[in-house]
Amino acid sequence: MTTFLEEVNRRIDGVPIQRCYHCRKCTAGCPIAFAMEYNPNKIIRMIQNGKKADVLNSSTIWLCASCETCVTRCPNDVDIARMMDVLREMAIEERVDIREKNILKFHEAFLSSVKMGGRINEPFMIANYKLKSGDYFSDVGMGLSMLMKGKLSLFSPRTKDIKAVKKIFNETKA
C-alpha cells in the first residue's frame, strides 16, 4: 500500500515534497496564509506525518488561490501550488467532507456552465452558483448594475461544436 506522501508525490509528478527543509519562505510570501488554518509548509509536514484526514479536511487546500508565489520563491523548487491542486483532487475523489463548500460549489458552477455552452455565460454561471450555495442575496445589486451597464448579457454566443467540448469533459473525468 502506498503512503499518503508517496501518493501525493506520484500525482505531483515533479520535485518530491520531502525536498522541503522548512525555511518557511513559501508561507512568508503566501497572500492567503493569514486566513489558513495550516500554513503551506505545515501542510507538507502533515503529509510527511501521514495526517491524511486532517489535510484533506482542511480549509487550506481550498483557500489557496493558486497565485504561484510559493513555488516561484522556494529554494528547493517544491511546487506547493501543484500540491494544493493534487490535494483538492484527492479530497473530491475520496468524498471527504469539504471544508470550504462554497469554493467548490463555485468551481462546479463554473465548469458546468462551460460544459453546457463551451463558454462561460456569467449571469447563468452566477445564478447557478447561488442556487448551489444558497447564498442568494450577496452581490445581486452589483450584478444588476453590470447588466444595466451593458457588461453582462443574458445571451452570449456559444461554442458551435459543443459536442467536442462535452467529449473533453466526459473523457477527462477522474
Binding site: S66, M84, D85, V86, R88, E89, I92, L104, F106, H107, E108, F110, L111, V114, G118, R119, I120, T159, A164, V165, I168, F169, T172, K173, A174
Partner: peptide
C-alpha cells in the same frame, strides 16, 4: 471555447 480557468486546474488536471 473556454480555457477552464482556475476552476479546471483546481479540480481536474487533465481537463
Amino acid at each position: 471555447s473556454c480555457c477552464g480557468a482556475s476552476s479546471a486546474h483546481m479540480t481536474n488536471y487533465k481537463l
